[in-house]
């Protein structure tokens, strides 16, 4: 018996679970429900696809995920009003999008590779192992797409732009991000027009000008 199997047997026994003919006659418990609740109204192929994707192997290596997390929090840090991107679950959303839309994979994986290679040559360490100051120094070189940058940095600019878009999209569709924005809809209500103080602020009114 392998050690792992011994442990399994021990754990079953230690909870006092007898495995005998009486229990064997008891019907199997129902299939465990998927941990993630699928959206209602899924077509069959969508439900199957979602369950498969959610159960699929992670796309990011632990090191890649660490870098994605650091970048996410540089792009959306915590401030007085709300938390950071990673606190809102953005890295997990990006991870899912890699599986959901595989066309993202090469630009993302390659971009992270590019970033690490550049950091090793500049600072002697991959991005995640650089000091905070070095990380910011690197990000400053690639965060402004309208600025002219040296020819060896243009791919980094494109990568950071993609990253910014993913992080903004992930953060502001999270509960935290929606609250930060102040979106207060998506609830039954009665629309009766723009509030009076807002009409006043913009010098507008619902009264039709006399024809």
């Amino acid at each position: 018996m392998k050690r792992r199997d011994t442990l399994k047997a021990l754990s079953v026994a230690s909870f006092g679970m007898a495995v005998g003919p009486v229990e064997a006659a008891v019907p199997e418990p129902p299939e465990p429900k998927p941990a993630v609740k699928l959206l209602p109204g899924r077509q069959k192929f969508e439900a199957e696809r979602d369950l498969k994707l959610l159960a699929a192997e992670k796309f990011f290596t632990p090191a890649e995920l660490q870098t994605v997390t650091i970048l996410s929090d540089i792009i959306i840090p915590a401030d007085a009003k709300s938390g950071s991107a990673s606190q809102a679950g953005v890295p997990a959303f990006i991870e899912f999008m890699m599986r959901d839309q595989p066309r993202n994979q090469t630009p993302m994986r390659g971009g992270l590779r590019w970033l690490n290679a550049k950091c090793v040559s500049r600072y002697g360490n991959p991005f995640a192992k650089c000091t905070k100051a070095q990380q910011i120094d690197m990000v400053e070189q690639i965060a402004y797409p309208a600025k002219k940058v040296p020819a060896d940095l243009t791919q980094g600019v494109a990568f950071f732009t993609m990253m910014r878009n993913f992080v903004l999209g992930g953060f502001y569709t999270s509960k935290m991000g929606i609250e930060d924005l102040g979106y207060v809809g998506n609830t039954p209500n009665k629309w009766d027009g723009v509030p009076d103080d807002v009409l006043k602020q913009y010098g507008l009114s619902y009264d039709e000008p006399k024809k």
Partner: peptide, 23 residues
Amino acid sequence: DPKYMTQLKWPYESPRRGASTTR
């Protein structure tokens, strides 16, 4: 029928936040 209802769901109730991957 709640089985089909996406009305009043939030973006984070979709793992892809409502992206148009399959529709």
